[in-house]
């Protein structure tokens, strides 16, 4: 666990890491940090621009925008992170199984992955949400499935290259079984690139979650999410542009931060070549 900390000592990684820590801490301690409630309407107070009382202004129901932004971070981050975690777990199992056992299993997995990979994630997610129904659960599953191909592909490629290496041959000649080699040797060695690309994908997932939210398919009101807030804000773009500007900035800055920190981590772990081979 040294590399993630060392990445913070790089100039870009440090600034980006600080922002991410700030957002995560804000999301976790949201009730302690915000003087307002995210869902109580105060109509006389609607459409206030930024002021001392409301740093980022208020929305069409007079709710404090900063409060909703911080609570929105809770939804957006947790949905994206959970979705990617599910995706990584399933992708690693599928990819490892395909690479390890080969044959028809590998062929089917590879074909399915190649097929879904060339379709934009937003389309896959849109259709899945249509099937499952709107709401955080639907979005989570949709995002998880949309990114499954990427992690399956990456894990499979990692295992394929590791499979031929001498230490695996050695373990096998010592009589280690399939499961032992797979879980003790192959997966741990494939872990670093997969985890880093999972982190970068979390950034994409935040955008995807926001897009689904924008279509009104994400967290349902009054629970705020960054995408949902922008969905409401798009109707107010002439009257109160700040309602849409700030959530979008939150998304953009957070995703930039994830990318910069991810770059620092890649440099720190020295795995650029392993990631690019499968890009």
């Amino acid at each position: 666990m040294i590399a993630p900390l060392r990445a913070l000592t790089r100039p870009q990684g440090g600034i980006a890491g600080l922002w991410l820590i700030l957002v995560i801490v804000a999301a976790v301690f949201a009730p302690l940090l915000t003087p307002y409630a995210y869902d109580i309407q105060n109509l006389p107070n609607a459409y206030q621009p930024a002021s001392g009382a409301h740093w980022l202004g208020t929305d069409e129901f007079g709710r404090d925008l900063l409060t909703r932004l911080i609570y929105g971070a809770r939804t957006s981050l947790s949905v994206s992170a959970t979705a990617i975690s599910i995706s990584v777990l399933c992708g690693m199992v599928l990819g490892a199984a395909a690479a390890w056992f080969g044959g028809w299993l590998d062929r089917i997995v590879t074909m399915t992955v190649d097929l879904t990979w060339s379709f934009p994630e937003i389309l896959i997610a849109l259709i899945l949400v249509a099937i499952i129904g709107p709401g955080t659960t639907g979005v989570m599953i949709a995002i998880a499935v949309a990114y499954l191909a990427q992690f399956t592909r990456l894990t499979r490629a990692q295992i394929m290259t590791l499979k031929g290496e001498t230490f695996i041959e050695a373990a096998r000649s010592l009589g280690a079984g399939n499961a032992h080699i797979l879980f003790r040797h192959l997966l741990p060695n494939a872990l670093a690139p997969v985890l880093v690309s999972a982190m970068l994908a979390t950034g994409d997932a935040i955008i995807l979650e926001a897009t689904l939210g924008f279509f009104g398919l994400g967290a349902q009101p009054p629970v705020p999410s960054w995408g949902g807030m922008m969905s409401a804000g798009s109707a107010l773009i002439f009257k109160a542009p700040w309602v849409i500007v700030f959530p979008g900035l939150a998304v953009a800055i957070t995703v930039v931060a994830i990318n910069l920190y991810g770059d620092a981590l890649i440099a720190e772990l020295d795995i650029r070549a392993r990631l690019r081979r499968d890009a």
Partner: peptide, 22 residues
């Protein structure tokens, strides 16, 4: 390029509308 690729496209569209149309 990094900043450009991290903005949700619908948001970017709305901001462009805000600046160039409105």
């Amino acid at each position: 390029v990094l900043v450009g690729s991290t903005m949700p496209s619908f948001w970017l569209g709305l901001i462009l509308i805000l600046i160039f149309s409105v």
